[in-house]
Design a protein around this nucleic acid. Sequence first.
DNA 1: CGGCACATTGAAGGTGGTCAAATGGGGTGG
DNA 2: CCACCCCATTTGACCACCTTCAATGTGCCG
Lengths: 243, 243
Amino acid sequence: MHSHAAVALFVRRILLRSVVSPGEVQALSGLEGRRVQASRGQDLVLPGHGVHHATLLVSGLLARFDQMADGRRQITALHIPGDMADLHSVPMPLPAWGIQALVPSVVLQIPHGDLRGLAERKPAIAMAFWRDTVADASILAKWTANLGRADAVTRTAHLICEMGMRMEAHELDQRHDFALPITQAQLADALGLTTVHVNRTVSTLRQECGVLFEQGRVRVGDWTGLVRRGNFDDGYLMLDVKA
Amino acid sequence: MHSHAAVALFVRRILLRSVVSPGEVQALSGLEGRRVQASRGQDLVLPGHGVHHATLLVSGLLARFDQMADGRRQITALHIPGDMADLHSVPMPLPAWGIQALVPSVVLQIPHGDLRGLAERKPAIAMAFWRDTVADASILAKWTANLGRADAVTRTAHLICEMGMRMEAHELDQRHDFALPITQAQLADALGLTTVHVNRTVSTLRQECGVLFEQGRVRVGDWTGLVRRGNFDDGYLMLDVKA
DNA sequence: CGGCACATTGAAGGTGGTCAAATGGGGTGG
DNA sequence: CCACCCCATTTGACCACCTTCAATGTGCCG
């Protein structure tokens, strides 16, 4: 995918939740950045290190993560193409989290200055950016709730539903058949489980809801069953708000 | 505490992380809202219900929470006086979360329109609000990481350190002796544990680090030990960024 | 063909959950 | 002023989900 196509994806993502004038859309579409290739497992942003650009994912899969003292990681967000993985860093350039490529990925590093300038000149864009980080926080809150109160199978089912819905909402794929090139170890870091238990959990969902992880894609045989199993309600994704 | 004093606290909280001109400080200080008294356990905002005001805590203790299908709750944030518990709702007036008073509390309900208007007229204030919600999200990410990867005692120690540091940073109390009128059942909802296990965990911390919960206050005998026990590093609280 | 990373399976153990009951404290009403 | 009740805390016994440790299977790529 070309860089400007990624910017277009990002703009579409913004338009999903915010009303922005044509002129402002154009200003957004004109954003440019440095194209960077990341290898599998590479850290693009290290926890506690300052950054001067935001990371727009062009292709691949990114994870925002927090690191424990002993090096173990907890993934706190997954990002698909078109996502600005750390729009947060615009108002807060010294993040506590890091960003990692889960597969070989291409990103566009967009200077904070450009984004901040845009936000300062156009209040509607400032509000749209703010809204985007709030939607991100809403997802994070749901992850927190699931980690605290849902068991392994429920959590896993919920995550699969979430990623399917997001892929579909961003018009990248269909909810029951979408790209998610993630290993079980990486899933474990996202779900707060061990690799071994993720394996058993995935196997349960394969039997119960026809969930298949194959060749970097997820296919869901029984979507309704999976939604029920994961107690999934997409309200928190903020997909139908328009403000 | 008087309402205008609460607004002053809020302004000070904003100034903790953002540089704002005197004129803008004055505009912020002029914010007004409806004063509302909440009883213990009362829900001020219900999950999935629209709101038209933001909730500034004057006195007491608030929790943002997510609710499971069976009614069990997971607290995703604790708010102390001076906190705007749902500044998020300004750009996103249909939140998936709810807000609950953990003790009898007084809040100021500030109309979204006033806050949005302020943000639209003053880009620096828009940025300051955005920054505030990002700091909130940073705390949320840390909770996620701890729920996913830290055991009960570590999580509890971490939460106590966090609340102590926040109380001190907001100049409400000292880190080793501060107001936190929370029951063990409420702590359980915040820590993703059961009441019974919170009791055992708190008892462990009482022995190991001299942590006492008494009359709505927390006193910490061995702060350094507690920090070590909770793997606490305050970077994620974003207390020393100024932008 | 060999190496490596990932997936899968088995067995045993531990952290935290569940169920149940006792203790303690603060407020209210008799 | 005491009795009572409600709620929170505390403790014990048992159980289960998930972890840990270890080994085997499998697909991809050099």
